[in-house]
């Protein structure tokens, strides 16, 4: 009973991370369209569009933070795994757990920092679009919440053991 509950939660996390990654891919497509559109507007219509520039930068930031959880879930973040790979299975497992613990600690501190920052600076707006910082920082917020959950599931060994050799991309 309990294990099926866990499975369902892990499944939901994988789905949420996958959805974020898909959203990131769409933002990348939008980014390409925006930049090409900016070129066209400038060269064909003599128009400079500061909001296009700003929206493109927002897409760039968002796509990074929205993809990070999926990479963690699959263990694809670039790491130097020489030492762990050289060790026998048991100490190696401990090092892997330590790495997940480090990820968890980083997530916790980052979210705390984001909470402090947005508490003060959440209402400020971006210059061209007047986008509030809450929106601007929403992708990192979502990304790090999912990243925390990803680290937790991997720490307790619930993640599907795929792509262990996928570190090099």
């Amino acid at each position: 009973m309990r294990s099926s509950m866990t499975e369902r939660l892990v499944g939901a996390l994988a789905m949420a991370s996958g959805a974020c990654r898909a959203l990131a891919a769409l933002l990348l497509a939008l980014l390409a369209v925006l930049v090409v559109g900016g070129v066209a507007a400038r060269n064909l219509a003599d128009l400079g569009l500061p909001w296009v520039d700003e929206l493109a930068r927002f897409c760039g930031i968002a796509l990074v933070y929205l993809t990070v959880p999926m990479l963690a879930l699959r263990g694809q973040h670039v790491a130097v795994d020489m030492l762990p790979k050289a060790l026998p299975p048991v100490p190696r497992l401990w090092l892997e757990k330590a790495a997940e613990l480090a990820m968890l600690a980083f997530c916790a501190l980052f979210l705390y920092a984001l909470h402090l920052f947005l508490g003060r600076a959440g209402k400020f707006e971006t210059p061209a679009l007047g986008m509030s910082n809450w929106l601007f920082y929403a992708p990192p917020l979502i990304g790090f919440v999912l990243l925390t959950l990803a680290a937790l599931t991997r720490l307790f060994g619930c993640a599907s053991a795929g792509a262990e050799d996928g570190e090099i991309r």
């Binding site: 400038r42 700003e54 061209a128």
Partner: peptide, 19 residues
């Protein structure tokens, strides 16, 4: 400079402001 008041200056002078 991509601030509205700065782009308005350039536009008002008769040019197309580009960031």
């Amino acid at each position: 400079v991509p601030f509205p008041i700065y782009t308005t200056a350039v536009e008002g002078m008769g040019a197309a402001p580009v960031p």
